[in-house]
Amino acid sequence: MVKQISIFLENKSGRLAHVTKVLGENGIDISALSIADTTDFGILRLIVNNPEKAEEVLKKEGFSVGLTDVIAISVEDKPGGLYKALAILAEHSIGIEYIYAFVGKRENEALVILRPDKPCEAIKVLTEKNIKVLEQEDVYNL
C-alpha cells in the first residue's frame, strides 16, 4: 500500500500555494495530487516521495494533516484500460471513496490512485486478475 498525505484547506486564495511552498522548500516531490472541494473547504490529497517528512513539516506550519493508506495501480494506457480494473472491484462489491491519476506516467501504463473501502481485499482481487498494484518505492520515486 501507498501512504497518501491529506491536508485540510479553507477555500481562500493562497492556501494551496502555501502548501506547495512548504513542500518545495523541504525538497519534497509531488507525484500525484487531487483536491476534493466543497463550498467552504477542500481536502488536498498528495502522493509524495517522503510522506512522513511532508506530514512533519506541514504540521509544523499549522496545517491539519493526515496519513492514509491508499493503493496505486497501473493499468493499460488505452481505451478500456481503467474499466478492466474497476470492473473487478465492482464484481466484488468493493466501493471506491475516491480515485485520481498520476501527474507523470510510464510508457504504455497509466497510474491511478484508489481509496477503496476494503483496501486489502481490493489488492487481493486486483492482483489475482493480473492488475499491477504498485509498491511504495515504485510510486515515491516516479
Partner: peptide, 15 residues
C-alpha cells in the same frame, strides 16, 4: 478550528 480528531481524508466525514 479543525482538530486532529475531526480531520479525515474523506469529505463526507468532515461534513
Amino acid at each position: 478550528e479543525m482538530t486532529p480528531q475531526m480531520f479525515s481524508d474523506k469529505v463526507k466525514n468532515i461534513e
